[in-house]
Design a protein around this nucleic acid. Structure first.
Length: 886
RNA sequence: GGUCGCGUGGCGCAGCGGGAGCGCAGGUGCCUUACAAGCACAAGGUCGGGGGUUCAAAUCCCUCCGCGACCACCA
């Protein structure tokens, strides 16, 4: 098999779209002229390369934006990249380390320069890959979350929230990544199950009570005992009530710490006594707050034990654990150890175990923001697709806690807080502050940067001129809110909800987007998430090489369902590539039969024309419906079936005789026009999903003067206008033709009769009207089934030595005299009789059920009665034929 | 612990109250002048198990089993 070079075909088409300016805000046309339709792409990280999630998500967005463009909207798909704080810093660190350079040696400024170098080198990679997919983004107005205007937007929001007291600074326990040496937000932490242990440690009482010398506490993290400042018991726990107020002498560090009561303690777990380390556990922190306990930080920023702990100082968390357990054992204070599975928090970036760590951080008070974000989803201003994600979103908001936004990194938006160390002045400012406005001394800016999501939340409007002109910016006035946001389910809270909160705050209570598509996650063929470590990933770039961008796009959308995952199925891409090929071949057929073509309005003349026009009208309506509900799987399956199984398999076949030499000239012209019309509509319907091949074919199609220069801006099929072509009689007529053709073909196949041998055929139909319809299409049957002496009648008897095929409302007799062994036919009829008899019995039972007759909808009863009559009749006829065959 | 998704022919999935469908793989026959990445034809399923509602259940309810996701807790 020769491999097609898809890129070679696709690239020039992409360039042509781009050069013609169709990716920028097109003016629009028709009934939607002047209405805008905007999508913001979830900005890929500058460290990223295209993966399957992008491939699917970007296909969805491109399909939406291309259809909107074809419907005449002024469209814009905003593209750009995210500076990706932790991720980029980690990669640049690694790259420097390979050269033997440490970030700390070269300092902040030089390091940031290195990050920009990375951005220059790799930041365009993923954008180029998105271009390779054919995505019609506005590449001439690309954005970056660290571009100057964006930086001002971030600072503006920080300052506004600071003034509104929605941002505050506090010393809190946060999730600390000792590897990235930064705080991360609660929702950036990932929980991983771990097979661990529960160590039971003995804490001697300072003074024995009633002969009791020690308490036993259970812990999964014995090393943190160095920072214990209390032991908690449940206030209702009778075992320990009398000990509350006493103290224990903490081993190894010789610290006297109180025993106190707190409702948080679970009497069922462990021993009912809990060691409390406020600085290294969020629950202990809370208990410590309530009990007024001392807070002792035993770890440095890389999670090594700090000075002052003797042999333990300088040990890592794991080393300290071993050492502490060994020391307890040596002292006879290790009661016992149990196996215990629990989950540990890890860094979503580097997967290092996080350390709850006390530090000073900046927070966003979410209570003032989350209500508005919940309201606009509750009242339907923002709709989720599938709808069930609405609840997930609302639950996320309901459980939201204050958001830690400071990160101890260098790459990112530096927190715009300025401090005067001389007089203690401090303030937030959009502009740089050099000297203290109070005392004139030099000031310093906060060293930390903001969480990357802090800048991401501004994406829909910071990319539209909001920074300088706010809601008066031209784009904000005309194109905000945007229409659709499509994204993966895992960043629903992290990103989607925060965009809503930020937009409601910044943009005068305006929502950022109207519809949110949560697409399924692309899982590997084994049903597991694609990952490097599993080695089960699939590379979209390879898929585009093998199936073309069109094949990949179509094949991915075909797999989209309302479920939360989709198991990646490469076979669908293969089918899609074959489908694209089919479209091209069908087009070739049409184009090579256009000799003497004269343009004109399409007008269905034959029943076949009326049938395909009717089917087209219904498909257009179904496709529109699919887009309106964001059901991409339905759209692709619907189109696949129509184009392949109706247009190609039947309509083109029907057309061949009409196009042949010697055919009626005016009918030939009508046929040409209708083929061009239907194919043209098909190209439009397929274009949002398979943009390249459809554009390529469109270039070859005959066009009149008003025709759009390229398919990308050709008008989308108009369902309302096409509705006049719906024609049930034509559909019935062609359905009968297909049935008769199928009957003859199947009989030939069964008896091994070559298509080259013409066979006489008689058809018995139920009504005179059907006879007329069918007889009028005798030529089609002759053409597709090689039939001679074709007869149709309501009253006709089965010809001698013929096979019979029973259809719905008709009976096809194929004369096989001289071709067939009738024993085989007899056996086949007997088998069919048994099948029909079974169905008859089933319907008789159903129709003799008084409940059914009384309660079922009348039309259902009528339908089933007719069905039974039909089946009974069929059965009788089979019996008759069997009798005749002897 | 809570919430949600999925279990339909060999494989991947549609269908979600009225006689089980699609694609792929497999079978048979075809180089039929658009297409062998194709054409034609045939075969293949007690719709995870059990119970219930209903005249009628793959479809609704309950329950169990099996996969999976998210949130909370986990000393």
């Amino acid at each position: 098999m020769t491999q097609t070079d898809y890129a070679a075909m696709e690239r020039p088409i992409f360039e042509a779209w781009k050069d013609a300016g169709y990716f920028q805000r097109t003016p629009g046309f028709g009934e939607h002229a002047g209405e805008s339709y905007t999508i913001v792409i979830p900005p890929p990280n500058i460290t990223g390369v295209l993966h399957m999630g992008h491939a699917l998500n970007d296909t969805i967005q491109d399909a939406c934006i291309r259809r909107a463009r074809m419907r005449g909207f002024q469209t814009r798909w905003i593209i750009g990249t995210d500076h990706a704080g932790i991720s980029t810093q980690t990669k640049v660190d690694k790259r420097l380390a390979e050269q033997g350079i440490s970030r700390l040696e070269i300092g902040r400024e030089a390091f940031i320069e290195e990050c920009y170098k990375w951005y220059e080198e790799y930041g365009t990679t993923i954008v180029n890959q998105i271009k390779g997919m054919g995505c019609s983004c506005d590449y001439d107005d690309e954005h970056f979350t660290l571009e100057p205007a964006y930086v001002r937007a971030v600072r503006k929001l920080f300052v506004d929230w600071y003034r509104d007291k929605l941002i505050y600074r506090g010393k809190r326990i946060v999730n600390w990544c000792p590897s990235c040496t930064t705080a991360i937000a609660d929702d950036e932490a990932e929980y991983v199950d771990e097979a661990g242990h529960l160590w039971y440690l003995r804490y001697p009482l300072t003074e024995p009570v009633d002969g009791l010398e020690y308490l036993v506490v259970a812990t999964t993290r014995p090393e943190t005992m160095l920072g214990d400042t209390g032991v908690a018991v449940n206030p209702k726990d009778e075992r320990f009530g009398h000990l509350v107020g006493r103290t224990v002498k903490l081993p190894l560090v010789d610290r006297e710490i109180p025993i106190f009561a707190d409702w948080h303690v679970d009497t069922e777990f462990g021993t009912g006594c809990v060691k409390v380390t406020p600085s290294h556990d969020p629950n202990d922190w809370a208990m410590g707050e309530r009990a007024g306990l001392e807070r002792i930080n035993i770890f440095d920023e890389t999670a090594h034990v700090v000075e002052g702990y003797g042999e333990f100082t300088g040990l890592s968390r794991d080393e300290a654990r071993e050492a502490v357990v060994a020391a307890f054992e040596a002292l006879g204070l290790l009661d016992h150890v149990e196996d215990h599975d629990h989950s540990v928090m890890t860094c979503y970036r580097c997967h290092t175990k996080l350390e709850p760590w006390e530090s000073e951080q900046w927070f966003v008070a979410v209570d003032g923001l989350k209500e508005a974000a919940a309201r606009v989803v509750e009242d339907g201003s923002i709709q989720f697709h599938p709808a069930r994600w609405k609840q997930v979103y609302l639950d996320w908001l309901a459980n939201l806690k204050d958001w830690c936004i400071s990160r101890q990194l260098w790459w990112g938006h530096r927190i715009p807080m300025f401090y005067c160390d001389d007089c203690g002045w401090e303030d937030a400012s959009v502009d740089e502050v050099e000297v203290c406005p109070v005392c004139g001394a030099p000031v310093r800016q906060d060293d930390d940067v903001l969480d990357t999501w802090f800048s991401s939340q501004l994406w829909p409007f910071a990319t539209m001129g909001w920074t300088e002109e706010g809601m008066d910016a031209p784009q904000m006035r005309t194109a905000y809110p945007t229409q659709v946001l499509s994204t993966a389910r895992d960043i629903m809270g992290l990103w989607v909800a925060r965009m809503v909160m930020a937009s409601m705050y910044c943009c005068d209570d305006t929502i950022p987007f109207e519809d949110v598509i949560i697409h399924p996650t692309v899982m590997a063929a084994d049903g597991k998430p694609m990952s490097k470590s599993r080695g089960n990933g699939v590379d979209p770039l390879r898929l585009m090489e093998d199936y073309g961008a069109d094949g990949m796009r179509y094949g991915l959308l075909m797999q989209v369902t309302g479920a939360q995952d989709m198991k990646f199925n490469e076979a669908k891409l293969e089918s899609s590539r074959n489908f694209a090929n089919k479209v091209k071949n069908a087009s070739r057929f049409v184009l090579m039969n256009l000799e003497g073509y004269e343009p004109g309005a399409p007008e269905p003349v034959t029943p076949a024309d009326r049938w395909i026009f009717s089917r087209l009208a219904k498909i257009v309506a179904a496709v529109d419906d699919g887009y309106d509900n964001f059901e991409f799987g339905d759209i692709t399956r619907e189109l696949y079936g129509f184009v392949w199984n109706e247009f190609c398999d039947w309509y083109i076949e029907f057309s061949k005789a009409r196009l042949a030499e010697g055919a009626d000239r005016s009918d030939r012209a009508a046929c040409q026009r209708n083929l061009v019309f239907v194919l043209g509509q098909i190209l439009r319907l397929l274009h949002p999903i398979m943009p390249f091949i459809t554009e390529e074919v469109y270039a070859e199609m005959p066009k009149d003067e008003e025709a759009a220069p390229m398919l990308i801006v050709a008008p989308w099929p108009n369902a309302a206008e096409l509705a006049r072509f719906v024609d049930e009689e034509a559909e019935r007529s062609i359905a009968m033709v297909c049935e008769v053709v199928g009957a003859v073909r199947s009989t030939r196949s069964r008896y091994g009769i070559s298509p080259k041998v013409a066979l006489p055929v008689a058809v018995k139909v139920a009504a005179e009207a059907d006879a007329a319809l069918l007889l009028a299409q005798a030529h089609l049957i002759g053409q597709l089934a090689n039939v001679e002496e074709f007869e149709v009648a309501v009253e006709t008897s089965k010809p001698a030595e013929s096979a019979v095929v029973l259809g719905s409302g008709l009976e096809v007799y194929i004369v096989l005299a001289g071709h067939v062994d009738f024993d085989a036919e007899r056996a086949r009829l007997a088998r069919e009789r048994d099948g029909v008899a079974k169905d008859v019995a089933k319907f008789e039972k159903k129709l003799s059920n008084p409940g059914f007759l009384a309660k079922a909808a009348p039309e259902i009863v009528e339908k089933d009665k007719a069905k039974l009559a039909d089946l009974a009749d069929k059965l009788a006829r089979i019996e008759a034929q069997l009798a005749e065959l002897g």
